[in-house]
Design a protein around this nucleic acid. Structure first.
Lengths: 162, 162
DNA sequence: CGCATATCAGTAATACTGATATTG
DNA sequence: CCAATATCAGTAATACTGATATGC
């Protein structure tokens, strides 16, 4: 039963993701635009999706509302997003992309990930390339998975809090 | 022609990775062990690989030596790794796993990633499950890819990238 | 009042740059 | 002297928690 590699695929995936992310960052030096990854990621969602509040965006990106607020503040200062009170609910402030934001986001995202684009071309064969979009969707499905709470207590119940 | 979705797969992959990583973190609250993700990631490499210096580990994980040094300092204080001067080269300090480090790493990594393990089980079908280890290796290959510098100027090499 | 949303303030974890010492 | 390694010091980017105000 004890596999040669005692590590589960989940752990392997988590480690690989972290490592690829680190590599991407370490190779990002060519792009000099002032926008950070988290800012571009939030901006992309603002541009692609319907008008949402800070809290909505925070939920979508799995960070706290206060963290997302920080990110959006920088984007607003840079003129890439604007804020508008929801006329139907005075508590809500909707975040909207500006023309400038819409123009900038795809271009800068492509530039920021130029290394990854090249690595994909260089490293993957035709079959892997063709399968990649499906894999990306799979990762997104995992990110959005609503795992039944019981499944999480699988090994937790047993105690051994180490 | 311009695709329906103007975003490249590379950008999609980068965004998906970041989002999945955020979700994993947001679901990690059940594990109360004092070790952070970056610490566990470094410890894993120390345990799995041959004795390496701080700089070697930094290269392997794509961070700066000073960043890795910080991470390792915490692990050393916790008794999970130890340091030993290289007898052949007085500049080098080798990082070694302690018995405690070897005992702790896989267990805590599994616990820390319990949500992802459950999400994988819940979300993926049999075929996807079977393909997952290959996907993980592919991500590792991308992380370690040595892209020829010329290839970064997308248009030089092989004409338009899309 | 309870709840959701936004926001103010402070903190933690991560990784960076620059500068300096030591060894080969 | 030069290169590699380690280390000291400070900083930036990211995301957290706690507390508070306001609108529904």
């Amino acid at each position: 039963m004890a596999a040669v590699n005692s590590r589960s695929t989940a752990v392997g995936l988590a480690l690989a993701i972290q490592r690829l992310r680190a590599r991407i960052r370490s190779e990002a030096g060519l792009d000099t635009s002032p926008w950070s990854r988290s800012q571009l990621q939030a901006l992309d969602r603002v541009v692609q999706g319907p008008p949402m509040t800070t809290s909505d965006l925070a939920s979508a990106e799995y960070v706290r509302p206060q963290s997302m607020a920080q990110t959006l503040e920088a984007l607003e200062k840079g003129g890439l997003v604007a804020r508008r009170r929801d006329p139907d609910d005075g508590r809500r402030v909707l975040i909207l992309a500006t023309d400038s934001g819409r123009e900038v986001v795809q271009f800068v995202l492509e530039k920021r990930n130029a290394w990854l684009t090249a690595a994909i071309q260089h490293e993957l064969d035709a079959k892997e390339l063709a399968a990649l979009p499906t894999l990306v969707r799979m990762l997104d499905r995992l990110a959005d998975s609503d795992v039944p709470p019981v499944a999480r207590r699988a090994s937790d119940r047993k105690g051994t809090s180490e």
